[in-house]
């Protein structure tokens, strides 16, 4: 048996990339401490979204490329909170509270569809996500919200593509209990929130239902033979993923300071997928360590590559490199997993 965290190609690539970036940043006199603070923020900002992939992965449904469905539920929650003009931390809490029931409903429908396409969940989820985005665009364009801060300034109909949260609950969690340590801003409240989310997921997978879900993901035929209700477990996993995704986008939006509507959610599933794969979850039980490590490594490259590319005068490079890394890692994981299944067949 290999060690549990044996370094594989994706981690290696990302580490090499990270180290060379850090070296470059050092030479270009970019403040490393501020980068580290940013990295911590980005860890949580995206961490909950990445965490949301865990239930579906562990139930054997695969990577939730249909993340836009969950994000939509979260965006609706955010918009409702802004519409009722709830500010500060209560605003954020309200957004989450609005989002959860919506995510449950959407997640249930999404799960029912995924239950029909067993074995091809990932590709179907991708296109459910892709087609859900224009459907929601339609909704955003005619949504009956009334807060003028969210509507087009001219005409007053239809939502703006980006809604500023400065007057509502922008960076509420980021600044909560944050303190400075050796020049690094430590967003303690934000980190605590993430830790709580992780803890909740961790505890869930220790319960009877959670254990059953992991067993289902490991061996569906076994689960069936043990008399478990497979479709119910799968639906539960998808709903959990969707709820976490909705909470994830709420955290993301408050941290970013803007709600991004319309086409923004379309590609959000891929960086999240890539992050969890970098963490080392490819083809086996995904743990919280994979989530945290993966998100941290992946997002730190984001944080560092931006200022460097700007300093080098070709600002597009950063984005292109990120895309390349994102998709390269997913492809590597797919090929690697294909090799593993082959070997598994050979062994039996």
């Amino acid at each position: 048996m290999k060690r549990r965290l044996g370094i594989q190609l994706p981690q290696l690539v990302i580490l090499v990339f990270l180290v060379s970036m850090l070296g470059l940043a050092f030479r270009l006199d970019i403040s490393l401490t501020s980068l580290l603070g940013d990295a911590l923020v980005r860890l949580v900002m995206n961490g909950v979204l990445v965490l949301s992939l865990v239930p579906m992965l562990n139930a054997g449904i695969g990577i939730n490329y249909g993340l836009p469905v969950a994000i939509t539920a979260g965006l609706l929650g955010l918009c409702l909170a802004v519409n009722f003009k709830i500010t500060g931390l209560p605003g954020f809490a309200a957004a989450v509270l609005f989002a959860v029931p919506l995510a449950t409903i959407l997640g249930y429908g999404y799960a029912r569809i995924l239950n029909c396409v067993q074995g091809r969940e990932e590709i179907t989820a991708t296109f459910i996500g892709f087609s859900f985005v224009p459907l929601m665009n339609y909704f955003w364009a005619v949504a009956p919200f009334s807060n003028p801060a969210m509507l087009w300034p001219i005409g007053g109909k239809g939502m703006r593509p980006t809604i500023g949260l400065r007057d509502y609950f922008s960076k509420e969690l980021n600044t909560l209990w944050s303190f400075h340590l050796f020049g690094i801003t430590v967003p303690a409240g934000l980190l605590l929130f993430f830790a709580l989310c992780c803890l909740a997921v961790g505890i869930f997978f220790k319960t009877r239902t959670g254990v059953a879900m992991i067993a289902l993901g490991e061996n569906e035929a076994f689960a069936k033979l043990s008399g478990m209700n497979i479709s119910r477990l799968r639906i539960l996993a998808v709903i959990l993923s969707t709820i976490l995704g909705a909470v994830g986008i709420c955290v993301y939006a408050q941290s970013y300071g803007f709600i991004e509507l319309y086409d923004a959610p379309q590609m959000m599933a891929f960086p999240a997928a890539s992050a969890i794969l970098v963490g080392g979850s490819a083809g086996k039980k995904t743990t919280l360590l994979h989530v945290i490590l993966g998100t941290f490594l992946f997002q730190t490259t984001y944080v560092i590559s931006g200022p460097i590319a700007n300093a080098l005068m070709v600002p597009e490079v950063a984005e292109i490199f990120r895309m390349m890394i994102t998709n390269g890692i997913i492809l590597y994981a797919l090929v690697h997993e294909g090799k593993r299944t082959r070997e598994k067949y050979a062994a039996s």
């Binding site: 074995g119 091809r120 990932e122 590709i123 797919l334 090929v335 997993e337 294909g338 090799k339 082959r342």
Partner: peptide, 8 residues
């Protein structure tokens, strides 16, 4: 090498 997952 990715039989069964060609489309994704």
């Amino acid at each position: 090498r990715v039989k069964g997952k060609e489309m994704i």
